[in-house]
Amino acid sequence: MSGHSKWHNIQRRKGKQDAVRGQLFTKLSKDIYQAAREGGGNPDTNFRLKTAIERARANNLPAENIARTIAKATGTLEGVTYEELLYEGFGPHGVALLIEIVTDNRNRTAADVRHIFRKRGGSLGESGSVAWMFQRQGQITVTKDGIDGEELMMAAIDAGAEDVVERSDDYLIVTQPDQFVAVRQAIEDAGIAYEEAELTYEAATKLELSEEAMDEVYDLVEALEEYDDVQTVYTNVLFPEDDEDD
Rank of each mutant, 00 (worst) to 15 (best):
L207M: 04
E196S: 12
Q185D: 15
V174K: 05
E198Q: 09
A193C: 09
R184H: 10
E211S: 08
G191C: 04
Y218W: 13
D148V: 12
A193D: 15
I147W: 04
T143C: 11
V142C: 03
Q139T: 07
K144F: 03
D163L: 04
E222Q: 15
R167Y: 09
A223S: 14
L224W: 00
V233H: 01
M214D: 01
E150L: 15
L172Q: 06
D229A: 08
T143N: 10
M154D: 06
D219T: 15
G160M: 06
S168I: 08
V183S: 03
V164R: 02
A213V: 02
E211H: 12
Q179L: 05
M214Y: 12
V217R: 02
M154T: 13
E188T: 13
E196V: 14
T232Q: 07
L224T: 00
D145A: 15
D145Y: 05
L199S: 06
A223M: 08
Y171W: 10
S168G: 07
A197S: 09
M214P: 06
V142S: 02
K206D: 05
R184G: 13
Y227F: 13
D163E: 12
L199V: 03
A186V: 09
V164Q: 02
V233R: 00
E216G: 10
Y171M: 03
Y201L: 02
A159F: 09
Q139I: 07
L207S: 02
V174M: 09
Q185A: 15
Q139M: 10
A223F: 05
A155R: 05
V165K: 14
I157C: 11
L220M: 07
A203P: 08
Y218F: 12
G146Q: 14
A204F: 14
L220Q: 11
T200C: 01
D169W: 10
D229Y: 02
T205L: 07
D189L: 13
S168N: 15
Q139R: 10
P177S: 06
E208F: 11
D228M: 08
G138N: 11
L224K: 01
E162A: 11
E226I: 01
A193N: 08
D215W: 10
M214T: 13
Y201W: 14
E151C: 11
A159E: 04
L209H: 11
Q185V: 13
V181L: 15
V174S: 04
E212M: 10
G191F: 05
V233M: 02
V181Y: 11
I192D: 03
E211T: 09
V221A: 12
L224A: 00
A223D: 13
E212P: 03
